[in-house]
Nucleic acid binder design. Structure first.
Lengths: 163, 163
DNA sequence: TTATCTGCAAACGATTTGCAGTTAG
DNA sequence: CTAACTGCAAATCGTTTGCAGATAA
């Protein structure tokens, strides 16, 4: 259906952790494929689909299925987390060291570009949920809109790509 | 994978709109199947999977494929919206008349029960995003935790069902 | 060495599509 | 009557699994 376009902000690795260290810390075997996948996740901000990750890993190429398994392992070890844009395709993003730099995204319904939002006003809610008896709380929050570049046609055209 | 359990709060139709009126307003043909599906969505609070909806419609039964097509039509007409719990299964929920009673959910990672949260602290963010040039804004927000009933085992057992 | 990865082929489950018959307006 | 809707079968697509060979520790 929708070809996922890689509009994600790509910037230099702003993380102190090295792929090797991260894998070691998680008790995961350091393999070529895992290091390559983690590299992709560290270098790209913004959630990536399995397909995007797989295509980003070359020389040596890494099988799609292997990426699925690596992502599964990373997720289980809390190295990454899953994002849903509402199109049924799973996207994953590196999880900066324990809660630091918690953030969310605005996703353009038209061009699917992703902009990070560096704050979160929702964490206070989690406290009140704790009072209600919930534990081990987390949340997912994504915004969807039409970005400036895709300025809305003056008529009320609808963007149904996402959401 | 996970059998979707129907823990959703079921309460009487607290909506003023009748299925017939809603369909008419949307310019959709009023058919037995559509009315039945809309009835299910009106009577159940909390997002339902296509399968749950399909199973809820009986006498006459409604084909799974038909439910998919009806849901598609409803979504296009903004009658319902999609929720993602992070397990790759789409869930849908009735969209109360234009923005009124906007809400979110807490989903138990263990028993998958859904509790509605009747407020939203996020709408102020949308304004600031508008200032940044975004238009036609919406958002998805879900909380995940372990509910009181599923009280966490005193040891640090992990709940990986969702998220 | 040995438990853990990886690749390839095949299975799976959710969702979509084609087509012919049915129905609402 | 006619366009729109529905059911059934088959296709599609993201994701998972089985198994045998390769690899990290």
């Amino acid at each position: 259906m929708n070809k996922p376009r890689a509009h994600a902000h790509t910037h230099g690795p702003s993380h102190s952790e090295s792929p090797e260290a991260l894998l070691k810390q998680s008790g995961l075997k350091l393999t070529v494929a895992r290091k390559a996948v983690l590299d992709v996740l560290l270098k790209n901000h913004g959630p990536l689909t399995i397909e995007q990750i797989s295509k980003s890993v070359r020389s040596p190429k890494c099988d799609l299925v292997t990426v699925y398994r690596i992502i599964e392992a990373f997720k289980k070890n809390r190295l990454i987390s899953r994002c849903d844009f509402g199109d049924g395709i799973a996207r994953y993003e590196f999880n900066p060291a324990d809660g630091s730099h918690h953030h969310h995204h605005v996703i353009c319904k038209s061009c699917e570009s992703v902009e990070p939002l560096d704050l979160c006003v929702v964490q206070s809610w989690e406290r009140s949920l704790q009072d209600r008896g919930y534990s081990d709380l987390t949340h997912k929050l994504e915004f969807f809109g039409v970005c400036k570049a895709c300025k809305p046609s003056t008529s009320g055209a609808r963007h149904e790509t996402l959401l």
